[in-house]
Simulated assay, not measured.
Amino acid sequence: MSTQPLRPRNGPAPDVIGPAPHSQVTQTAPIMEQEELWQRMRALPYAFMAPTLVSVSHARALFLPEGVGSGPERAFQRGREFAHLHPHHDGSLHLTLPDPVTAEVEAAGWGLRHPEQDTVLVYGPRDAAELETVWHLVRLCHAYAMGGQAR
């Protein structure tokens, strides 16, 4: 993974509600960007889709099987769920990331910590360039859950 710092996200942060549900309510990601992101997420090694254990219905969640990945317990939201993408009307996602990466996400304006859980809300990608940044964060999340270097 790249060690370059995140580029700042353009414009003001979207409006967010929460903590339950914790979601993005403005600047919704276009559905095509959401679907491209989901296709990439589904292809992550060892990841499988199952109903979320922590998010709203219709959120799409990714898990690692038992015995796969050696990330710390806090690399998972509940059970073996490490990420979920919110429904189309929202388009944001919750990821588990190490604290230094979460701090970088917040400083660069790409998301914010969940007020009650140990996850970060990453804003949905508004265009192809933002998709690449969000995809980078998803890969860091996956690496963290797998027990690899999350940078």
Rank of each mutant, 00 (worst) to 15 (best):
L44P: 11
Q149G: 14
Q4I: 04
G109Q: 03
G79Q: 13
M32A: 06
L85F: 00
D99Q: 12
P8H: 05
M41V: 04
G71F: 11
E66Q: 10
D15G: 09
W135C: 02
R139K: 12
L53P: 03
P12G: 11
A47K: 09
Q39L: 00
Q4H: 12
V105S: 02
T119W: 06
A145M: 08
N10E: 11
L140Q: 15
H22G: 07
A128V: 01
T52L: 05
E116S: 08
T133V: 15
G11V: 03
G79I: 13
V105H: 02
G79L: 11
G18V: 02
V134F: 03
L85E: 05
Y144T: 11
V122N: 00
P19M: 05
R7T: 07
A108Y: 01
P45E: 12
H86R: 00
E35Y: 02
F48E: 06
P8V: 02
E73P: 10
T26N: 05
A13C: 11
Q4N: 04
Y144M: 14
V54D: 06
T102M: 11
A108Q: 00
Y46L: 13
P5Q: 01
A59R: 00
L137A: 01
L6C: 06
F76S: 12
P125I: 00
E104I: 00
V68L: 13
A59H: 02
A59F: 00
L121D: 04
A43D: 15
P72I: 13
R74M: 08
T96Q: 15
H136A: 07
Q24I: 08
Q34P: 07
A150R: 09
P21K: 03
P12F: 01
T133K: 01
W110G: 00
G148K: 06
G91W: 02
L62S: 10
R126W: 04
P125Q: 02
P5F: 00
G18Q: 01
D99K: 02
P87K: 07
H136N: 07
L37S: 01
R78N: 14
E66Y: 04
L6K: 00
H114Q: 08
P19H: 13
S2W: 02
L97H: 02
A75Q: 11
S92T: 10
V16G: 05
P45D: 12
V101A: 14
D90N: 00
M1R: 15
H88N: 04
R80M: 08
E81I: 09
M41F: 01
R40T: 07
A145W: 12
